Computed example of a mutant assay.
Amino acid sequence: MDNLLAYSTVVLVLAMLPGADMMIIMKNTLNYNSNAGRVTILGIILGHLFWTFIAVIGLAVVIANSILLFSTIKYIGAAYLVYIGIKSFTAGQLVSMNKLKDGGGRVKGHMKASFRQGLISNIFNPKVLLLYITIMPQFMTVGGSIGENQQLIILAGILIGISTVWFLVVVELVNIMKRWLKSRTFQNWLSKGAGVVLILFGIRTALEA
């Protein structure tokens, strides 16, 4: 594990690239409040911990090599992203005036929904699985003083840490954007735009080999 700096750089670039996780975080932060965005991140973290556990016990490679299992995960994840995208597209108004006045704190069940979206989108994201079996092994040392499973846990911890910090920055930036949400027309287009992006992410996930 002599290339932790290079690995951290790769992870930071991957985290900053626009993806389904970032779009869901942005959507929930705008639709509710910054706490909903943070709870979404918590769901994403739990999803990564799930895949870390799967990788440590050796099931990640089994899943990746099974056409049936990998395809099932891929299509469930794709369908869920399309579902969330359609809901956002048809919402019309992404953030109501009442939510902007009270910070969205009175929206019943939004915390659970935000957490669930972050968790499910991450667990059923085949790219996360491939990250654990393609990129991480390149930065592991076979036969070193640190066992492979321990190395995997360390690399996963770095991934989770860097991603969490970046996503928290995104939440704060998006929360600042709410000052521009007084226009109902802008909200309508923003809602539809977020929905279209999530739908496209879902379609791309389904079509990727």
Rank of each mutant, 00 (worst) to 15 (best):
L4V: 13
L4R: 01
L5K: 04
A6G: 13
Y7K: 00
S8L: 08
L12H: 00
V13L: 11
V13C: 04
V13M: 08
A15G: 05
G19P: 05
D21H: 07
M22Y: 09
M22H: 06
M23L: 15
M23G: 04
M26S: 11
K27E: 13
K27I: 13
N28W: 05
T29D: 01
T29F: 11
T29I: 06
R38W: 08
V39G: 06
G47L: 10
G47R: 09
G47I: 09
W51H: 06
I54W: 02
V56N: 02
I57T: 10
G58R: 07
G58Y: 11
G58T: 14
L59R: 03
A64Q: 11
N65C: 06
N65I: 07
N65A: 10
S66E: 03
L68I: 15
F70H: 06
S71F: 09
T72S: 11
I73L: 09
Y75V: 15
Y75L: 15
A78Q: 01
A78M: 03
A79H: 00
Y80F: 13
L81K: 08
L81I: 13
V82Y: 00
V82E: 03
Y83P: 08
Y83E: 10
I86W: 03
S88C: 09
T90C: 12
A91H: 05
A91M: 12
S96V: 12
M97D: 11
N98Q: 12
K101W: 01
K101D: 07
G103W: 04
G109K: 06
K112C: 10
S114R: 01
R116T: 14
Q117A: 09
Q117K: 09
G118D: 00
S121K: 00
N122W: 00
I123A: 03
I123L: 01
V128C: 05
V128T: 13
V128Y: 00
L130F: 10
L130P: 05
I133F: 06
I133T: 14
T134R: 02
I135M: 02
T141S: 09
V142A: 11
V142G: 05
V142Q: 09
G143C: 06
S145E: 14
I146S: 04
I146G: 04
E148R: 10
Q150P: 00
Q150K: 13
Q151N: 11
Q151F: 14
L152F: 07
I153D: 02
I160K: 01
I160Q: 04
G161F: 12
I162R: 00
T164V: 11
W166T: 03
L168G: 05
V169T: 10
V170Y: 02
V174E: 03
V174H: 00
N175R: 08
N175F: 12
M177A: 14
W180H: 11
L181D: 07
K182H: 15
S183Q: 06
T185K: 10
T185V: 15
Q187W: 05
N188M: 14
N188Q: 09
N188A: 12
N188Y: 07
L190S: 09
A194I: 14
G195P: 08
V196E: 07
L198S: 03
L198A: 08
I199L: 03
L200V: 14
L200R: 00
G202N: 04
I203L: 15
T205S: 11
A206I: 12
E208G: 09
A209F: 15
A209Y: 07
